[in-house]
């Protein structure tokens, strides 16, 4: 069971949250110049590292806010939690490189 520290509510159990998948995705632009392969990747291809993953979580059964989590996909260790408007913390960016 994960223990997630919601930036607004503090530590809460996993069942209160929903994982919303990869963070920091950028829609390819301009729309009329995006080829099918790029668009297909934008729709269907996600990061799937065996290592640190940056993902969004939703405190669905709490404050209903979204936030970012850096989590290791083998150990499930949570390396950082940061708000939607914050950049990737430096320590985490280093661990992913």
């Amino acid at each position: 069971m994960l223990l997630l520290h919601c930036p607004w509510c503090g530590p809460r159990d996993e069942p209160e949250f929903v994982c919303g998948g990869q963070s920091h995705m950028v829609r390819p632009e301009p729309w009329h110049a995006v080829d099918e392969a790029t668009w297909g990747h934008y729709l269907f291809t996600r990061d799937n590292p065996k290592g640190v993953h940056l993902e969004r979580w939703h405190h669905a059964h709490g404050c209903r806010q979204w936030f970012n989590v850096a989590r290791h996909t083998v150990t499930h260790e949570i390396l950082a939690i940061y708000r939607m408007d914050e950049p990737v913390p430096n320590a985490v960016a280093g661990a992913r490189a």
């Binding site: 069971m1 994960l2 159990d13 996993e14 069942p15 994982c19 799937n48 590292p49 065996k50 993953h53 993902e55 989590r71 996909t73 083998v74 150990t75 499930h76």
Partner: peptide
């Protein structure tokens, strides 16, 4: 949520 750990979670 993404996982490569071959064990499940309790919820």
């Amino acid at each position: 949520y993404l996982s490569y750990a071959q064990r499940g979670n309790t919820p």
